[in-house]
Nucleic acid binder design. Structure first.
Lengths: 180, 180
DNA sequence: AATTTATGTCAGTCATGTTGACATATCTTG
DNA sequence: CAAGATATGTCAACATGACTGACATAAATT
């Protein structure tokens, strides 16, 4: 062992996957790195726009899921975002105060505050999704349908399924698309 | 429940891409969401392990790139991570103090501090990469080689190429299309 | 009536990001 | 060589978004 070793480094838990191309036992530095850069630039699109509103990533995530799953409960949102009540409370309060989201008391359970995006909120979330959609469209434009399906399959398979929250149940449970 | 509209929200910037499957003009909520969950769980693997070392994501990113690009300058690292000197300084100092990284004075330019991972650092970074590689292997195991290449192509195409830092030059510069 | 649940809120802490200023060593240039 | 530019390190101060733990309220459940 010289000083720098990386292909057979200690703690290699391999064993699990040996893919069709036969590169088992190898650390996937390339994908790891691509994921970092891809996600960095992907969220960067929205981050820049959010500054103009005085919002951050946390606001975006809340808006996104409230928009996509109208009537989401606060507790569901906590599961999805995997943050604490305290952290959510801050951004949610801002979004409520500034009219991007409204709460409605649950019909069956009046303790629940069901969350809905207002038109103002819809506009914001669509604007941000538009930026990200542009990037996605650019990225897939030279990939054939089968390849695009592979991308989708890959992303789905990267997600933990042992503790599906309400949103993931919708995504995976029906195995189709949540909306549309 | 007639006050909430979500499918025809304003500000739709569309127009940019019309992919082969003919779903132009549509926001790609599915991919946006899958990216969120996939990345959340992907980095979650490492986050959990890092706790045992008293480190965070920032430390991981530094270790990763120093390992992958031995002799990286501090300035390069700042470009790649897109954080400030101050932020980097804090985590870098810890990693140096605790022996995960060493600095060497540049040969040509003695102002430079070239960064290298120590064996201790290599072990850590390989352990983390192992966890993430397991997830990636699991995700691609049912995807054929062509599909896997599509995944790689997708991730590469998601990355900004207008301001390539030293690392991105290495990733993209040597390969096919610099900017097409 | 007592307990549990869903939500909201307070106080304090931590990690990681920011800006701006400044110090030092070293390289480059007039 | 002197002057300036560059690479790095460091200080103070601050913002955001996480965290914990405690506690309050209203409503549902037992």
């Amino acid at each position: 062992m010289t000083d720098i070793n990386f292909s057979t480094a200690a703690g290699d838990p391999d064993s699990k996957g040996s893919d069709a191309a036969g590169r088992a036992n190898e650390l996937r530095w390339d994908i790891i790195e691509l994921l970092f850069f891809a996600y960095r630039d992907f969220v960067g699109d929205a981050d820049h726009e959010l500054e103009a509103f005085g919002f951050g990533r946390a606001h975006h995530r809340v808006m996104h899921f409230v928009h996509r799953y109208p009537g989401l409960k606060v507790a569901d949102l906590l599961d999805v975002l995997r943050i604490t009540k305290q952290s959510l409370g801050r951004v949610l309060k801002q979004l409520l105060d500034e009219g991007y989201i409204v709460q409605k008391t649950g019909n069956n359970d009046r303790r629940q505050r069901l969350l809905y995006a207002t038109p103002k909120g819809e506009t914001l979330v669509a604007k941000l999704a538009g930026l990200q959609t542009d990037r996605i469209n650019r990225a897939v434009q030279e990939i054939d349908p089968a390849g695009q399906e592979a991308v989708r399959q890959f992303l789905r398979a990267m997600i933990d399924r042992d503790d599906p929250d309400k949103v993931l149940e919708t995504i995976f449970g029906s195995s189709k698309k949540p909306r549309e």
